[in-house]
């Protein structure tokens, strides 16, 4: 197996995640363009023109190329599974030069910017293990402006679903134009504090416009989308009808005493790209 070839694939994955947006995101922005007017429409038009330009010129669409974040489903029968982590870290380091990516790994104690977008626990990788021989990697580089608006709350279970909805809407109002709306909201409900936040981020992997398979949860998503868009915050917080493109919920059982809600805010640049690596080293960026 040629590790260099696989690493080239991961670099290509990172580049695609930075320079192109998924079709579902573009379609929902085009829909926003058709319902907005005035300054709001101008913002969406700029966004769409920027997406077009970034793809055509192969440049990152936003200067904040984010924290390099990967969700990996590794087939347990993939040979040399132990090499994957090192290979991905190496790809991030190289992609920083090649794509290029902005150096975004800052030491929290002395504020020194560590070159290469790597460091302790960075890139952020979430592992899952599946049967088979393929490895599926999703890259979702995460920008700082939207991540700053993410929040965890440990509600009292008595607050119930209405308490969850109130928390989300209050936080969106506080965030205003800061997270670069129209945003995509990932909500993790249940689990513990850490799992709720992780589920919130995992929820962002779902394409925009796709509802939860459970009708009751889909209805909550739909209600939140409508109520958030009624706030009038609009694109970039300048007023308008489109404040969120979508709300996605993932859930886990909660402890009897807890109702954790993790809200992960993603900017309109809902960057996602996928690749699969086969057991013989062949790969495809999808």
């Amino acid at each position: 197996m040629d590790y260099n070839k696989i690493q080239e694939g991961v670099i290509k994955l990172i580049k695609k995640s930075q320079t192109e947006l998924p079709v579902d995101v573009i379609e929902s922005l085009e829909k926003a363009l058709s319902v907005e007017s005035g300054i709001a429409k101008l913002q969406i038009a700029n966004i769409l023109e920027n997406i077009r330009l970034a793809k055509a010129t192969g440049r990152p669409l936003c200067q904040d190329t984010g924290v390099q974040t990967f969700f990996i489903e590794a087939g347990v029968d993939f040979p040399k599974i132990g090499h994957l982590k090192k290979l991905i870290i190496g790809a991030v380091k190289k992609a920083t030069e090649i794509v290029p990516l902005r150096p975004n790994a800052v030491d929290p104690f002395n504020s020194k910017n560590q070159a290469g977008n790597i460091g302790n626990f960075i890139p952020a990788i979430t592992w899952d293990f599946i049967s088979g021989t393929d490895v599926n990697i999703t890259a979702i580089p995460k920008g700082g402006g939207s991540e700053n608006m993410s929040k965890l709350v440990m509600l009292k279970p008595a607050s119930g679903i209405n308490g969850i909805k109130k928390f989300v809407i209050d936080e969106i109002k506080k965030a205003g134009g800061n997270p670069c709306p129209p945003t995509v909201i990932g909500l993790g409900i249940g689990g513990g504090a850490d799992l709720a936040m992780k589920l919130g981020k995992l929820a962002l992997l779902r394409p925009v416009g796709l509802r939860h398979e459970d009708k009751n949860i889909a209805d909550i998503e739909e209600e939140l989308i409508q109520r958030i868009n009624k706030t009038g915050i609009g694109p970039m917080g300048l007023g308008g009808k489109t404040t969120v493109l979508d709300v996605h919920i993932e859930h886990a059982p909660r402890h009897p005493a807890s109702l954790p809600v993790g809200m992960v805010v993603q900017c309109w640049a809902d960057r996602r790209a996928k690749m699969v690596i086969h057991q013989d080293g062949r790969w495809e960026v999808l």
């Binding site: 700029n46 966004i47 920027n50 330009l53 970034a54 669409l61 200067q63 900017c267 309109w268």
Partner: peptide, 13 residues
Amino acid sequence: TVYTGGAGALAAD
């Protein structure tokens, strides 16, 4: 004044 957030390629030009 505000410019469209995230429109980095457009601004660069």
